[in-house]
Design a protein around this nucleic acid. Sequence first.
DNA 1: TGTAGGATTTGCGCTGGCGCAAACAAAGGT
DNA 2: ACCTTTGTTTGCGCCAGCGCAAATCCTACA
Lengths: 231, 231
Amino acid sequence: MLDRTVIAGLPPFEGLEPDDLDHVLEQARSSRYPRDSAIFEQDAPTEHFFLLLDGHVRVVRITPEGEQVISRYVNAGEMFGLAVAMGRATYPARAIAAVDCVVVAWPNSAFAELARRFPSFGANTYRTIGRWLQDTHTRMLELVTAQVEQRVAHALLRLAHQAGRKTAEGIEIDFPITRQDIAEMTATTLHTVSRVMSAWEEKKIVISGRQRVVIVDPHGLMLIAEQRPRP
Amino acid sequence: MLDRTVIAGLPPFEGLEPDDLDHVLEQARSSRYPRDSAIFEQDAPTEHFFLLLDGHVRVVRITPEGEQVISRYVNAGEMFGLAVAMGRATYPARAIAAVDCVVVAWPNSAFAELARRFPSFGANTYRTIGRWLQDTHTRMLELVTAQVEQRVAHALLRLAHQAGRKTAEGIEIDFPITRQDIAEMTATTLHTVSRVMSAWEEKKIVISGRQRVVIVDPHGLMLIAEQRPRP
DNA sequence: TGTAGGATTTGCGCTGGCGCAAACAAAGGT
DNA sequence: ACCTTTGTTTGCGCCAGCGCAAATCCTACA
């Protein structure tokens, strides 16, 4: 049985009494996932929905042709795998632990009861899904209208915002991320990402190494991201 | 006051008693929108949510740079402008009547009450939003991985499926649609769409004219849509 | 300390489809 | 019947970024 303090104060459970929190956790079980392991697979039947307690999770969609696109990164404290709330029988994507993770899982059957018993939980969940829809639209717009350099800049800024850690050199992305990963976020190739980032390293905008990105000059990066395609 | 039969049998109101339907409609008002008029504007404060009774509505997102992307077409019988269900204060896109339309609008304030009083209505709405999220992801994947020709083929097949009308020549898209519109659905230019479709006309796959598209050979189009990029 | 495997960098050539421009065609208004 | 507006077609040149290939660099593990 989990301690109620691990979920107290998280948006989905805001306003719940200690007893309520215990009730919520009664149906949950927590597990650890080592780095690079799958939490659920695309098209697998949905049996659980999840809360990430610690770590970072990558959500990836794969086309029939085998091409991958990273649809988002999940940060600690966020819900994911909410297929049940969307009335889906299978997960639409694969979830991979980007680092060692601690996850709480509820069986799908718990969702309806929790949403009914704690309306704020249901409302929050649906708002979350609504926000994902917005974010997805926004990213889609960006992917199809902006140039590669701007897309990569946007992706890094978003990562820095969500999962940035201040260091002496600048803002470091808090989990290992490869050129390939960035390519899959921005719909390009690892070669192009590498070229773009090498150029930025030259200009002292970022420092990057193996699976590591530090943003030295966020403002400079923002200028690149906001650049008009044809002035 | 609207007659209850106009909404009876529609998925969101499935299983409601005649009295319930009357109650639902008490808070609604219906209006007509002439072709090309806006039903709501992007970033405008959300005051209503809508049901399309008759016609076709185009939902368009505009970037700060002024580029447009058509995020979907709404068909008769579908809800749209559900910003309130996603907890948003402004509409994330603009809705334009693609033909003369009849629309039912409810004030946002009605949403919470309806969702509480008729759980099936709430569940259906949230499922709908979940489906939009899926569709958007799928389209995004397609836009960034497939070639222009395949994207246009997919777009036409989707349109034919949702809003196709059988004619002597083939399946005709049920509303006026320009090359520019198709370009905004597939993230390309009207010039390229024109070239692609001229080639298809040559091969007797489609017949097209001013604001008009007829799919003569859906199977041939499907072959193009499913084509592997690099065999 | 050596080494295998993964990650990254970089050069080079090619091409899909965009930008530009101009002509043409179909509606609709007067 | 004419003119304006709006939509469509087509030719041409160009370039961002991909595919391919090869070298190099880390890092973990033996």
